[in-house]
Design a protein around this nucleic acid. Structure first.
Length: 783
DNA sequence: CAGTGAGCGAGCTTCCGCTTGACTT
């Protein structure tokens, strides 16, 4: 039996530490918090110093009794949860729940999982810091009070099952307000002038740009006209050295951002891949807000850089965390072994590891050095100058391994920006020939919609949420239906382009797509209505600085400068009063908006939120029996109550429409919540993109139906004579059995074609008997 | 998935932060 029981939060960490400590230590994990407030409304007694009722959740019961037993047998229990507010509370909960004795318990902390760090921690034990525990209690209680008092207000005043909270409600607010900024935005156009110059020598072409833009077409035309007879000369040539430094190693939020930009992973995907890398011992802990590297790591990185690239590529760097409210209980995310350039694993694990390795290594490498050349080119007859920029890399430094990307990168590349190309040898006073000069109409861009990752970045900047909650928060706001992550089609827009080639001026009207989005976060109507409600009645809670201001007070509690129940009292009494007042005075919020009158029928048209989502109503609700009933239509994906126009709303009533018949059955075209479709003999056929549902002809409809049937038959592997309802189909993830309404996966090793009806029936029955436990839980959570 | 759409009322929902699994038509 071990003399010492040491408890950490994570099982992977426990395994590593056990290896460092030897036989006298048994290292176990608490798997995070071991108890939480009871789920009911009586968890906090607000009239009795915010006294809390805690319980060990069902799935932690056996773990807790195991730890209790081991603790009893041990001479000393070492509480080694993380050194932050939550970690301190975990230690305290362990102390209370396991029934530990003060003289047999020691609290230790370390920021890095290295042998010396842990041995040093063991030599310097302390007691539980109750100020820190109180700060955590204040945080926990405040969040519960806010969440469990605000949500019921929404149930009464907006819709059942909705939720509100200190973190999620601000996330929704950011998205709603950004959408409104975009809707409000008016693009302005201006002509941007670029030129391609030649030195006269073959292949020596380079680009230059006019820093000024012309707002009017006439001014741009005049400029190009003047260029026809102009002489171009290099007036000045300036070369200066520039340098670029590497970014710090990853934190949770920067990893999520970079994996989203470079690998296209959602934040939750990134986290689950990182979790695997961590469990396999490839990387350090992935939920961290620190950019700090341990001395061990700094030495290992240095050794690796020196041996792989040479000492001139190495530069020791220590980064400082900038994020508000960072608690820095862990190191930055880095490879455990820098000498491992690649790892075993699936493709996604390899790619994420590669990113983490490069970023961490690059952070310890020297600056990249450039020589930047700027040439100013005069135009006779004009006061403006063309400017050409060139950049030559003199030393690659950290760029040898890693280049950070930016959010604007994809946008800018559309703009065919002159990305600091290399200039040919130039001399001051040299004259140039203009091969081509172009004035292109460019539009100003509205603020960018949030992606999952850029939302995390914004939340982190505001100090809202923690590394462990960024991904869940993004799921919550989507699961509640406040936000959707979508792809939306853009609109076509025309722009002018004036081109001067060989002394000839030519005007073209071109088209471009604007506003097309992929994987961006859009607010829903319910998200907007809930947000407006909260902003109106609970301005303080959804204020962008609310978290920062309570965090400041939690810090004071943690430093023993403030009493935690006093802090909660001064927060709770005005807050609770607001809740009471709102319940009594606020109207039910339905987001209703009047669109005016239908010019054809003279009936009123309005939009609002109904049981099945937003819809348009034409005609008033009748007051007496026998009066004409109003008609209804659902809004389409992408349409919102606050932006839909009267014309768009009326358009929704032109469908469903008969387009002809096929096999003696009518074909109707209509628009559902998920886009236009054809209905035929109780089956649905989606319309291909780009086909206007109003113009579908009988022939097109038949073609769509036949095409879908053909595709379905290609998926078919086998039908059973015994029961034609039972089929084997080729699905997205391989063959599966369609057994009535049930779909059953075919076990590995079976050839789908050879399955008999009996075998298939047995598989389906077995699958039905065995309910998918985790699946149901997950589905329930989603709802 | 998709065509609908009253209002009532019982009984339900809900927070944030710390951790992993078991789940995947």
């Amino acid at each position: 039996m071990a003399k010492n029981l040491l408890i950490v939060e994570s099982p992977a960490k426990a395994k590593t530490i056990e290896g460092y400590l030897g036989k006298d230590f048994l290292v176990k994990s608490s798997y995070g918090h071991i108890r939480d407030l009871v789920k009911t409304d009586d968890a906090i007694d607000v009239n009795n110093n915010f006294n809390q009722k805690y319980e060990v959740p069902a799935d932690k019961k056996s773990l807790v009794s195991e730890l209790k037993k081991l603790a009893k047998e041990a001479e000393t229990v070492w509480l080694a949860s993380d050194e932050d507010r939550e970690g301190e509370a975990i230690s305290w909960h362990l102390f209370e729940t396991l029934g530990l004795k003060e003289d047999k318990t020691k609290r230790i902390v370390f920021h890095e999982i290295t042998k010396p760090a842990i041995l040093k921690a063991i030599e310097n034990p302390r007691q539980i810091n109750y100020n820190l525990v109180n700060a955590q209690q204040a945080r926990r209680v405040l969040d519960r009070l806010v969440g469990f008092e605000l949500s019921p207000v929404l149930w009464r005043k907006v819709k059942p099952s909705l939720s509100a909270g200190r973190v999620q409600s601000v996330a929704v607010r950011l998205i709603v307000e950004r959408e409104r900024e975009i809707n409000k935005f008016k693009a302005t156009a201006a002509y941007k002038v670029t030129a391609i110059f030649s030195t006269g020598k073959q292949k020596e072409l380079f680009r230059a740009e006019l820093p000024e833009r012309f707002e009017e077409e006439a001014a741009a035309t005049k400029f190009l006209e003047d260029c026809k007879k102009a002489v171009y000369q290099i007036a000045s040539l300036e070369t200066r050295p520039t340098k670029r430094s590497p970014a710090p190693p990853f934190t949770t939020s920067t990893l999520q951002q970079e994996a989203s930009r470079k690998l296209g992973y959602s934040v939750s995907r990134t986290m689950s891949i990182a979790q695997k890398l961590y469990e396999h011992g490839h990387i350090t802990y992935m939920r961290t807000d620190s950019v700090n590297l341990s001395d061990t790591a700094l030495n290992a990185a240095s050794a690796e850089i020196n041996s792989a690239y040479g000492s001139k590529y190495h530069q020791l760097r220590k980064f400082k965390t900038k994020a508000a409210g960072a608690q820095e209980a862990h190191e930055a995310i880095r490879p455990t072994y820098f000498e491992q350039h690649t790892i075993e694993g699936d493709a996604s694990e390899k790619r994420l590891y590669d990113l983490i390795w490069k970023r961490a290594i690059a952070s310890q490498m020297s600056e990249a050095q450039f020589e930047k050349t700027t040439a100013k080119i005069t135009i006779t007859g004009r006061t403006e100058n063309f400017v050409a920029n060139g950049e030559v890399m003199k030393f690659d430094g950290f760029l040898k391994v890693y280049m950070e990307s930016t959010d604007e990168e994809t946008e800018a590349s559309v703009d065919e920006d002159n990305a600091n190309a290399i200039l040919p040898p130039l001399a001051q006073g040299q004259t140039l020939t203009a091969q081509e000069i172009k004035a292109t109409e460019r539009f100003s861009r509205p603020p960018a919609r949030y992606t999952e990752a850029s939302l995390v970045k914004k939340l982190e900047e505001l100090g809202i949420g923690r590394p462990s909650t960024y991904a869940p928060t993004i799921s919550t706001v989507q699961n509640r239906g406040y936000v959707v992550k979508e792809e939306r089609e853009g609109k076509q827009r025309q722009f002018n382009q004036l081109t001067l080639v060989s002394g000839e001026l030519k005007k073209e009207v071109k088209t471009e797509t604007t506003g097309a989005e992929k994987g961006k976060l859009f607010p829903t109507d319910i998200g907007a209505v809930v947000n407006d409600f909260l902003v109106q009645y609970f301005k303080g809670i959804v204020d962008y600085h609310f978290t920062a201001s309570v965090e400041k007070q939690f810090d004071e509690i943690a430093h023993g400068l403030k009493e935690w129940t006093e802090m909660l009292k001064s927060f709770y009494s005005p807050f609770h009063q607001e809740v009471e007042t709102t319940i009594q005075t606020a109207e039910k919020a339905r987001g209703e908006r009047d669109l005016g009158v239908d010019p054809e029928s003279g009936k009123r048209v309005s939009v609002r939120i109904g049981r099945f989502g937003p819809f348009v109503q034409i005609g008033d609700t009748p007051e007496n029996e026998g009066e004409e009933k109003p008609r209804f239509a659902s809004l389409r994906s992408g349409q919102m109550i606050e932006t839909i126009s009267l014309e768009e709303a009326l358009e929704l009533f032109k469908l469903p429409k008969k387009v002809g018949s096929y096999e003696d059955k009518d074909m109707t075209v209509a628009i559902g919540r998920f886009g236009p479709y054809i209905r035929h003999n109780s089956a649905f056929y989606s319309l291909p993109k780009g086909l206007d549902p109003h113009d579908v002809t009988e022939e097109q409809a038949i073609e769509i139906i036949e095409d879908k049937r053909k595709k379905d038959s290609e998926k078919l592997i086998k039908v059973f004579e015994e029961n034609p309802e039972v089929k084997i189909l080729n699905g997205r993830w391989g063959p599966y059995i369609e057994f009535g309404k049930q779909n059953v996966k075919i076990p590995k090793g079976k050839e789908p074609k050879d399955l008999t009806f009996e075998e298939v029936k047995a598989l389906a029955e077995a699958a039905e008997k065995e309910p998918k436990k985790g699946g149901k839980k997950f589905a329930a959570k989603k709802k």
